[in-house]
Design a protein around this nucleic acid. Sequence first.
DNA 1: TCGTAACAATGAAACGATTCAAAGTTTGGA
DNA 2: TCCAAACTTTGAATCGTTTCATTGTTACGA
Lengths: 341, 341
Amino acid sequence: MNRSASIKDVANHASVAVGTVSNVLNYPDRVSQRTKERVLRAIDELGFVRNDAARQLRAGQSRTIGLIVLDVGNPFFTSVVRAAEDAAALQGSAVLLGDSGHNASRESNYIDLFQEQRVQGLLISPVGDITERLDLLRERGVPTVLVDRLADESKYSSVSVDDDAGGYLAARHLLDTGRRRLAFVGGPTSIRQVADRLQGAQRAVKEEPDATLEVLDSDGQTVLAGRSVGNMLVERGELPDGIFCANDLLALGVMQSLTMTHTLRIPEDIALIGYDDIDFAVSAVVPLSSIRQPTEALGRTAIELLAEEVESENPRHRAVVFTPELVVRQSTGPAKGSSAG
Amino acid sequence: MNRSASIKDVANHASVAVGTVSNVLNYPDRVSQRTKERVLRAIDELGFVRNDAARQLRAGQSRTIGLIVLDVGNPFFTSVVRAAEDAAALQGSAVLLGDSGHNASRESNYIDLFQEQRVQGLLISPVGDITERLDLLRERGVPTVLVDRLADESKYSSVSVDDDAGGYLAARHLLDTGRRRLAFVGGPTSIRQVADRLQGAQRAVKEEPDATLEVLDSDGQTVLAGRSVGNMLVERGELPDGIFCANDLLALGVMQSLTMTHTLRIPEDIALIGYDDIDFAVSAVVPLSSIRQPTEALGRTAIELLAEEVESENPRHRAVVFTPELVVRQSTGPAKGSSAG
DNA sequence: TCGTAACAATGAAACGATTCAAAGTTTGGA
DNA sequence: TCCAAACTTTGAATCGTTTCATTGTTACGA
């Protein structure tokens, strides 16, 4: 048990050359039936398992793809990850998953790790604007596809969802159901997705002369962060009549603190809409309206674009942009004593 | 850009021997200041990145740990994963994550993959009773720790939570708040965790002569599966007055279908309790009572036990069992016109 | 029976890092 | 100035695969 069996041990045990064992493993057709059986028996008896490090070393490349997401705890990303894993499995690759947690240094560590592993390529949902680092990767010949982030097509392929359009959809829906004093709740606007969704919302609000949009900064994009923004609003007293949150987790948090007052009603007093349409949106205190993103398509397409980059020597990069979709539920029903318009 | 620089390229560029470059990387103290600087400059100029495959091949072992969970979409597991990653990072290892999705063949694929990668060890939350496969791993000298599953201490280390105790806690709580016609909702009882929780519940119910427990099979452990059990109950009409779900996702699903009727009230007509205490439990339609499991401790301890196995030649295995905790929220408040007993 | 084409099996070289015994260099005390 | 000890540097050997030119074997038509 000290050292696991090598291909050489198998060769000895079956009285053949190492090359033959390798052929049994990789090109079974090149080997005669008799020999194949003997080798397979030896493999079984010794419990031989290929050493992937040696394979990779010889091959110069691994069969893994690195994927770095901003937050594995966020159902949006787990869904993308799942789709990417499935798509990768179809083409015989495995996915190494890294969670940066919106933290640039953790992200950097994963990039280092994946580079050392000589991954086939990298899918990354980057923290901030790490163009220098990514440009370096590009120079080093590591194919990279940006996920959930629009990229300069001359440099990278990317899959993303039109966040500006999504923000517009959300705000437009609040306006269409009669709300005029809107609030946007979103983490630091240095996060691109947040900034774009806000921008789309502002575009919609500008279309209604009597509508206003207040921006409420949240500390991150979690249920907890949403709850503290909600508490702040409740204490402050002066409330908007429609709230658009940069993601569903935030919205669920806001919903919690609003409903805990037992005096504010959703949607009669305040309408609430989130973003991502995670599974939990439908099972919230008040089922949450949201903006749905095609997560499966994101993950699958990312893998496909990466495959294109890996295969062609000098690939043309493509930026695939998906369109989000409004999902109306109870949390944005008609306002108190007003007909939608 | 065709081929990334090797240690030999660096050595040439800096006019030193390959061994010296290796020393700069691994034992900087053995190298003089002048030489070190020269080598580091060469590394920088060539953009050299260590080839992990070659390192591993030489070292005979990788610095990664394989972790196979039943469902990454389940917040319980993502929480465990996160804790394990952090603990592993502290000891300089990386975690390779695999999602079996309760599927034995996917699980088997990941075990193969991880074995080929020569991971330091394996953390696994196994699908069913795969003792044969695990015994084989043990013979091959792959240290293995079972996660969320009690193991025979003579063979494996394990970290788990006492599911029987948790089931008892949940059912006892329903009984204590006056419910007598209980139902248990849980995926196939071939899943160990489900079976144990049910058993604990049955133990509690036996303590009350006038109490009954009906078992409702669910198709998996997702929000969706919960919803369909709930729909079935509503259509059938004859309802329990207390429901214990094998996890929170199921409970949220059941809650959805019950509240959609607009005639049944939680907790007045039916009390509902879940299991896991995921973040979303608190933000449900009716904040969900649940059984909390110490997920961080699970993940961290799993890594620690694995480290013990890796370090000692002939380790004594340990089975660490954590105790779950009742979290009472609104979904199990007092019943209609009855005082708790 | 011979020659050749098709098929099988061989084993040395290569991948890139680490290790370690050996060789080379510096330092400082006598 | 010389010697030994301490410090640096060297480079061949090694890890376990895959590759591929070469050698060995078989089959079959002439």
